[in-house]
């Protein structure tokens, strides 16, 4: 669901309306993704990400929240094993199997 299509005239919010914030509006055509075979789960990217876009599950890095990611590439720069890299926005990204449904 894309949030802008659900804004009612005057931004009125009715009882069952759900807001899905899209904070990724200023990514400029590229998004980060992870080469899992190279990731050592050090969480350096997680600690540097200014928008808390790195998703952890049970303390382990499992993927990137593209609704929050601004595409600043700090994760790419900070990754000691070059596991994080940028791909064109349209590229479908499959997440780690064990978290399948998330994003």
């Amino acid at each position: 669901m894309s949030f802008p299509e659900t804004i009612r005239p005057g931004a009125v919010i009715l009882r069952n309306d759900q807001s899905v914030p899209n904070m990724s509006g200023w990514r400029t055509g590229k998004k980060p993704t992870v080469k899992w075979s190279q990731c050592v789960d050090c969480l350096i990217c997680w600690s540097f990400c200014p928008d808390a876009a790195m998703i952890l599950e049970d303390g382990h890095f499992v993927g990137i929240d593209y609704q929050a990611c601004k595409g600043c590439e700090i994760c790419v720069t900070s990754c000691p094993t070059q596991a994080v890299y940028m791909v064109p926005e349209e590229t479908p990204v499959s997440l780690r199997e064990e978290i399948g449904g998330v994003l």
Binding site: I13, P21, G25
Partner: peptide, 28 residues
């Protein structure tokens, strides 16, 4: 008026909008 306060469809009016929403609302 489509979402009249007194017509049983009362909602939230004049909510705060952060940068992720304001632009689209203004554009509408």
């Amino acid at each position: 008026y489509p979402y009249a306060l007194l017509a049983g469809t009362a909602g939230t009016y004049g909510a705060f909008a952060m940068p992720e929403h304001y632009f689209e609302i203004k554009r509408q």
